[in-house]
Each structure stands twice: as C-alpha cells, then as structure tokens.
Design a protein around this nucleic acid. Sequence first.
DNA 1: TGACAAAGTAGTAAAATGCTACTATTATAA
DNA 2: TTATAATAGTAGCATTTTACTACTTTGTCA
Lengths: 223, 223
Amino acid sequence: MENQDLFPSASMSVTVDVLLFTIEDGKLKLLLIRRGEEPFDGVPALPGVFIRPDETPEAAAERAIREETGLTGIYLEQLYTFGAVDRDPRRRIISIAYMALVPRERLTFTAGVRTREAWLEDVDALLQDDRPLAFDHREIIRTARIRLAGKVEYTDIAFHLAGEKFTLPDLQRIFEILLGEKLYKANFRKKMAEKIEETGGMLSGGPYRPSKLYRLKKEKDRS
Amino acid sequence: MENQDLFPSASMSVTVDVLLFTIEDGKLKLLLIRRGEEPFDGVPALPGVFIRPDETPEAAAERAIREETGLTGIYLEQLYTFGAVDRDPRRRIISIAYMALVPRERLTFTAGVRTREAWLEDVDALLQDDRPLAFDHREIIRTARIRLAGKVEYTDIAFHLAGEKFTLPDLQRIFEILLGEKLYKANFRKKMAEKIEETGGMLSGGPYRPSKLYRLKKEKDRS
DNA sequence: TGACAAAGTAGTAAAATGCTACTATTATAA
DNA sequence: TTATAATAGTAGCATTTTACTACTTTGTCA
C-alpha cells in the first residue's frame, strides 16, 4: 500500500456512509435522509459525511450518526468499502460503509443541518421495489442486509437491536426478522440460555401472561 | 457520504494492501516484500499500490498482485479498510486491504520493480513473534488470519487454496491449517460429499495407496 | 371464576458431530 | 510372489444439536 507508485500523490475524496438499523413494528428498518443538494437533490440516501483529515473513518461514522440523531456510543461495525469509479457522477469518491444497530427506543432523529428530512424505511420492502436511491446506495443496502442475516448466526450482533433488558419472545422476533424465517421457540431458548441471564424483573403491561426479562451475559461469565 | 460537509473537498491518498495467501509445507503462508524506500525502508511489508484515479480498488489489488507475481485472475476478496490517522508517519493514508488466495503451484514471484525482494512467510509463526513489519501491517495480517479461519466454516473459501483437482486428504489438510484444529476424516468426507465430485483420476506417485481426485461442483449442481 | 392467549416446558424423531476401529489399496522390500 | 508399511477410505455407535408437536403455566379481562 504505502508502496510507491506511478501516481504517488494521486488523492481522492473519502466518505463514510452509515446504515443505521433498528427494529420497528416487527420490521427491520433503516434510517434514510432526503438529500438537500446536487447531485441527487431531493432523492433518498444514506446519511454520510466526508472524512476529515484528522478523523478516523469510525469517528466520521459516529459524527454522521450524531448529526442525524444526536446519539453517541451506539454499536458500529464496518461493512464494506465501495469504490466504483463512477459511483459519484461528479468526481472520484470512495466510500466506507458502516452498519449501526440501535434499539428503537433509543432512537430519535430529525433532519440534519444540511438534510431535508429523515425517516425509517422498511429495508426488505425497499429492496423489493425499485424506488430511486442516490448513488450506489441500493447496492450498499443489499450488501448490508445480507451481512446482517449472515452474522446473526455466528455473532451476538442481534442483541444490539434489543434494549438492555429484553424478553425472550421479543429477542426471538428480532432473530426471526434478521434471518427471515421462523424459529422454534424451545430450541431458541436452549441456544440463548448460555448467553443470557434473568434480571429478576418481568414485563407486564401486555395482556395475558407476562414474560421474564433477561440481559446479555458478559462474555466471560458464560458457561 | 456524498453529503456536503464543512470540508467538502478534503481529500487523501487511498491505497490497497494485498494479503496473498497460499499453503506450502503444511503451513499457511503469506507473500511479503521488503520495502525499497522510506518510510520503513528495508522493512518487511505487504505488497500494495496507490489507487489510481481511474481504477477501482479491486483493480488496484489485481495490479499489485500482477506486479509482484505476474498472476492474473486469482481469487480476491475485500478484507477491511484501515484508516487510523497516524498509520503512515508522513501523511494521511487510508488503505483497503484485500485477501488473495492461490494454490501454491500457480504462484511464482520475484521482487517487484520497486521492491527489494519477495518471499513467503509462515503466517501463524509471524503472528507469534514480534518481528517488525511496516505500518499497521501486523494488525492487518491478524485481522485477515481471523477472517480466514471464520470464513472456512460457512463459505467455500478454502477451495481457492487447492488446485483445480485435489485429493480429499489434501483438502482436509487445508481446512485443518485454516481452522487450526484436527478434523475427523469420516465426518469431513461426509460434509464435503455434496460440494465435490470425482474427476475419475487418481493421484499416484506417492508411496502407498493413491487417492482419488475430486473437483469442486458448480453451485447449481449440488444436491 | 373461567376463558383467552401468550409464556414457558417436555419430549421425541431425525440429522449432524465426536470419536474409534475397521477394511482396502498400492508401492516397496524381501 | 508375498509380506509389510502406511495411507485411503468406510462402518458404526455415542452424544449433541436441530426439527417439530404438544403440553402446562400464568397472567389479564370479561
């Protein structure tokens, strides 16, 4: 990389795009904004910022989230770097995409300073139809959706979409939404057993039998 | 991303680093080069190039490989993008790392035009000791090693380290090297059965019983 | 007090995995 | 020509995980 080259000083703009996911109404949703300038003025897009010279990509992603939602300290992971030569019609831009996961109850958002509006969009519905999205953002979203489904199986990523305390039925719904398939209750509970612990509390308020509240165990406390 | 920003025209250098893996002498090995200029002149490093303005990151990775080995058309996948502010002592550089996998028999290499020498290094041994490596290349290698072990389990990535035709004992060795653990022969064969098909040929030449040659089935032909 | 409906548990068949031990095949040496 | 070494390949069983059904429990609300 830092190898020399025929064009050693060639430089380009680098941006960060953020895919902020949450679960709402039993659906996986994603924060979109309406662009407030060219190109793609008025078109839905992912929130994003240029990386500043003194800023890591991750810090830039955090800044993008903060600008759009006011939130800090939410779970972030790098997705992929998109670098097609013509992905921006004006000039060469390379963009590092980050996925952010947040429980719905922590999430608030308004239009950013330079953004017309912001809203949550049903991801799977969005990927079905062919509404226009700015740049290559549709491809980025598709990549993220696949990654998310894949990582549910071998990481604890799904827990970032649940709150601090959660019920097992709710947790199961999150897993099912991400995976796109029904799971068996009994087996799901057996598999979760080693990862979670009871808080002692119950979630009443709904009709019918209340469910117990759990929290995610620390990695080290697992059997 | 293509959102406007307070520093909309801030730009930086973007490079690609390549982790070219192969299997040799029962070990996972990686192509390293000795740098031929500052910074880190004379220090081992990953091969890499600056991305040209009219070139995708993937094409740049292919070019880096071609320059060092003469090879084209080998398996490539993006690993991660590294962007610590001080990862290059001179100036801000963001680097996209790519993993390349190639069967040992396809691989030849010599020092590149601007490189002093090139050689294959035992990856796990390298990660044990603390020999100096240029930039954050040690961290990049560590990240790749983990990714590789992880992806063996749920993708066909390991097959890229075997040739077109391979024996099951050889294939099992590749899996074991990547995973870092012994596998049970009988179970391994059952699991591979759906992915592979016999070529009809045998690999003789060794002492003792020859083994059958297989090839990877096309995805669509699998049961 | 009882019905509703979801929370939570039991249990069993089938499939995958962990693990041991066997048989089959070939090259080489005697 | 035969015995032997050593790997290729298979059988088979115990254990664990997964698929799936059906039950019992517990609260709210009429």
